[in-house]
């Protein structure tokens, strides 16, 4: 079943990144600044954003193996009528979320990914994907993918998860 597929995929994946205190601070800074595009980013992220074009993309955004999904746990919105950075029709994007730090194979740079959930409908049920690189327990919620992040939305019903690039990660 799909559940099993997601589990076993995560079990065979090579991991490139390691967590460090500096890495964590970088990720924390991003989540404190807010993941949604409507919320201002911290200066460090903003400067990166202004000087660099969006990252190149390579791979299938509906595959769990896609580079942006390194810390995701949920249904991929690209399989649910949305895309890797947009919600399906009739849903509402959570303004707060958890983040991951994923390496883009195009430029081998690490990017901060905001996994905003799309909310207001029941589970999409398609393309369940669980990867846990940099995921941490519930006592560090900003990097925990075990949480339903449909918070601050009109409904807390979880539908699917996006993977939005919000900045480049600080050097490890």
């Amino acid at each position: 079943m799909k559940w099993l597929d997601g589990m076993t995929e995560s079990g065979t994946r090579e991991i490139a990144s390691k967590t460090s205190r500096r890495g964590f601070l970088g990720r924390l800074a991003a989540v404190l600044a807010g993941g949604a595009a409507t919320i201002p980013l911290l200066p460090v992220a903003r400067s990166q954003e202004s000087s660099n074009p969006p990252p190149g993309e390579q791979g299938d955004p509906t595959s769990c193996e896609y580079w942006r999904y390194c810390a995701i746990d949920g249904f991929l919105c690209g399989c649910c009528g949305g895309s890797m950075n947009s919600c399906p029709p009739g849903t509402e994007m959570s303004p707060i979320t958890w983040i991951g730090t994923c390496e883009n194979p195009v430029d081998q740079k690490k990017y901060i990914i905001s996994y905003n959930d799309c909310c207001g409908k029941s589970s999409c049920g398609n393309c369940l994907c669980q990867r846990n690189e940099g995921d941490r327990p519930l006592y560090r919620p900003q990097v925990s993918n075990d949480i339903n992040w449909c918070l601050g939305t009109s409904s807390n019903s979880y539908h699917c998860s996006t993977a939005i690039v919000v900045g480049t990660a600080l050097d490890e």
Binding site: S10, G11, R13, I15, S17, C70, E133
Partner: peptide, 8 residues
């Protein structure tokens, strides 16, 4: 490895 903490 990093990320395997929820593996079966």
């Amino acid at each position: 490895r990093e990320g395997s903490h929820k593996d079966p």
